[in-house]
Design a protein around this nucleic acid. Structure first.
Lengths: 348, 348
DNA sequence: TTGAAAGCGCTAACAA
DNA sequence: TTGTTAGCGCTTTCAA
C-alpha cells in the first residue's frame, strides 16, 4: 500500500487502489470498477470514489494492470540507427502524428533499435516478453522479412508501406499512392501547357520508383503524349540528376518540364538549369517528390508531391485498433492507399 | 503457466518461468537466478536452465518483472505533434541515436504526445502510474516549466538543451555549444583570408541565437577584427535572410563572408548572391548552421556547423544511467557541453 | 547452492 | 450495486 501522498507533492511511493478504497470507504474492486466500468456504480458512490482519486492523485499502476490484463497499451516500432546522410524529416512528421494518433486510441509508442543484419531480433524479444500489444512496421523496403515473420507469429501489426514483393499480402498496411502523386504532377504540368514532360527516376529494381514512374507514364499516355526519349533512370543523388537533366536537354527533342522521383533529383535538374542560365518555372518546369525542406527553402521554391503522412499515421492506428479491438477479426479490407497532394511553387 | 510452446512456433501464451523450471527440473527461483544472478548457480545447473530457456524460447514477462521491481526499463520522451513546416531532420537523428544508446543501457524509449497548452500533462500521468523510469526532456526552449516541475516531483530526467533562464540549474543536461560552432565557422573564414565577416542571426530574445552570435563576435574580437556594421538580426526565413544579406552587401564596407545562425538564413544569402551573379565560395563565402539536408543538397554545397547529435544522445543516456544506477546520487557535474564540427563545402 | 513462501497492484469471476 | 477470493509472473526474503 502506498504511503500517504497528497495530490501535489510526491513522497516515496504513489497511492494504490487500496489507498483510494480506504479513503472512499469502499472495497478495492469498487474503485477498479469506478475506473473501468463506471456505469456499474451508483452515482453517489462513483462520485465519492472519484473524489478520493483526485485527492490522492491516484493513477493505476501500469505494471500491475498490464500483468493482470495481459496487455501493455504499448505499440512497438523499430527505428534503425542514423546512417550517413539519411536524416529523415519525413519520418519525423510521420512519427509525431503517430504518437498523437496512438494516444487518442489509448496507446503509447515504444521505440526499439535494430539493424538490417538481424531483422527480427528486437521484435521477437518484445513479443515474447509481452512488452507491446502490436507493432508498426515501417522499413518495408527490403522485401520485409519482418512482415512475414510477424504474420507467422500471429503478432498484430500494421505496415506503413506496401509489401511490393508479395502477390496477396495478408497483413494490414497503409501506404501513399506514389503513382497518383506523379500523375498529379504530370497533369499539373500538362495544364500549364507542357507536352514534352520528362521523367527522372531511379533504377528499375526499386518498386517504389517504378510505381512513381508509372504515374507519369500513365498520365502522359492518357493525354496521348509521347514518352519516347523522355525518361532517365539514375542514382538518387544531386549529381546524377544534374547529369541526366543535361543529357535530356541536349537531346533532339528536349523536354520543357521534369517530373522527378525525389527532391534530390529535382535539385539536380535545378542545378543544371542554373548552370545553363535557364529560369526554373519559366524556361523549364520542375516537380520534385516528398516536399522536403529543400523544396521549401530553395531560393526558387520547388513544386513537389507531398505525402499525407499525418493521415497515414491516423490510418495506421485505425487499422491497429481494428486488430486489437475485441473481436480479433479486424476490418475486412485492411489496405489503405492514400493520395498525395501537390505543393505548387515557383518551379512550375 | 504458459501453454507448451516450442522455440519457433507461437501458441496462445508464451512460456513462463515455471515452464522453464519444470523443464530444467529446478525451482522457479533457480531460473530467476539464472537470469539475474547467474554467478550463484552451479555451472551445470546454469547450463541446464539456459538450455531449457532456449528450448522454450522464454523471455521474462515484462509486466510481472516491472510490478515486482517497481521499474519499467522505459524512458519517456514527449513529442509534440507536427507543426506547419517544422519537419525536423535533426530530431530524427537525435532520436535514432537515443533509441540505440538507450538499448545499450537496457532501456527502451516511450513516446508520448503533449502540446504547449498543458506542459506537464503527459509527464504527470506516466510518473504516477510508474510507466517510465525517467524522462528525456527536449523542448526546453520556452523556459521549460517541465524541468522545474519534474525537479519538484523528484522525477529522474535529463534535459537535452540548456535551461537558459535559470541561474543555477540543478538538473542534469546535455547541450551543444553553439558559440563554439560559430567560433569554428568564423575562424575557418579568417583562415581563408576573410576579415569582413558578417553575422546573420535571430532576434535578441532568443538565447540560442545570442549564444551563436557570441561565438562569432568573440572570434572576431580575438583577431582584433571589427564587427561594426556587420551584424543583422532577422526572422528565420529565406526571404528575411536574403534581404538582410542584400542590405549588408550594399553597405559602405560590405562583408566578404557570412556566418549564419541557420541554414535557412544561409539559403537567403545564397539567393541574394545568385541574383547578383556572385559566386558562393569565390566572391562571397557563406556558412550555415545545422548541416541540414539543404546544406548538403544545394547545388553549391553549403559549409555548415554540424551538431554532434549522436554523441549528445549517448551523453544523455550516460547521465540517465548515473541518475538511475543504484546510489541515486548521480554524477557530480551532470552538465555536458558538446562541441560541434564544421562540414566544409564549396560555399566557403 | 537450491527451494519455499510471500506479495508487488491490479482485475476477472463469482458471491452476497 | 458492492464485496470477497484468487491469481497474473516475477523477485525478494528467508530457510534448508
Amino acid at each position: 500500500m502506498g504511503e500517504r501522498s497528497a495530490a501535489g507533492g510526491r513522497t516515496t511511493s504513489p497511492a494504490t487502489l487500496a489507498d483510494v478504497a480506504e479513503r472512499a470507504g469502499v472495497s478495492r474492486q469498487t474503485v477498479s470498477n469506478a475506473l473501468n466500468n463506471p456505469g456499474l456504480l451508483r452515482e453517489d458512490t462513483l462520485e465519492r470514489v472519484q473524489h478520493a482519486i483526485v485527492e490522492l492523485g491516484y493513477s493505476p499502476n501500469r505494471a500491475a494492470r498490464n500483468l493482470r490484463t495481459r496487455t501493455s497499451s504499448l505499440i512497438g516500432m523499430r527505428m534503425s540507427p542514423p546512417q550517413e546522410g539519411t536524416a529523415n524529416a519525413a519520418m519525423d512528421r510521420f512519427l509525431r502524428s503517430l504518437v498523437r494518433a496512438s494516444e487518442d486510441a489509448g496507446y503509447h509508442l515504444l521505440l526499439f533499435p535494430g539493424d538490417d543484419l538481424e531483422p527480427v531480433g528486437g521484435y521477437a524479444n518484445l513479443l515474447r516478453s509481452t512488452a507491446v500489444d502490436a507493432f508498426v512496421v515501417t522499413d518495408t523496403y527490403l522485401g520485409n522479412p519482418q512482415a512475414d515473420w510477424l504474420t507467422e507469429q500471429r503478432a498484430p501489426f500494421v505496415a506503413f508501406g506496401r509489401p511490393w514483393g508479395e502477390a496477396r499480402p495478408a497483413h494490414p498496411w497503409v501506404d501513399v499512392d506514389g503513382a497518383a502523386g506523379t500523375r498529379l504532377a504530370t497533369e499539373h504540368l500538362v495544364s500549364r501547357g507542357h507536352t514534352r514532360i520528362a521523367w527522372l527516376g531511379w533504377h528499375r529494381s526499386l518498386p517504389i520508383g517504378e510505381d512513381r514512374r508509372a504515374g507519369w507514364a500513365g498520365a502522359m499516355h492518357r493525354r496521348s503524349l509521347s514518352t519516347a526519349g523522355l525518361a532517365a533512370r539514375v542514382e538518387d543523388t544531386v549529381q546524377a540528376g544534374a547529369q541526366a537533366a543535361a543529357a535530356l536537354l541536349d537531346s533532339a527533342t528536349p523536354p520543357t518540364a521534369f517530373v522527378c522521383a525525389s527532391d534530390t533529383l529535382a535539385m539536380g535538374v535545378l542545378h543544371t538549369l542554373w548552370i545553363r542560365q535557364l529560369a526554373p518555372g519559366r524556361d523549364v518546369a520542375v516537380v520534385g517528390f516528398d516536399d522536403s525542406q529543400v523544396a521549401q527553402v530553395y531560393p526558387v521554391g520547388v513544386t513537389s508531391v507531398r505525402q499525407p503522412l499525418e493521415e497515414a499515421a491516423v490510418e495506421v492506428v485505425r487499422l491497429l485498433e481494428g486488430l486489437l479491438g475485441g473481436d480479433g477479426a479486424g476490418p475486412e479490407r485492411p489496405h489503405v492507399l492514400l493520395t498525395p497532394t501537390l505543393a505548387v511553387r515557383e518551379s512550375s
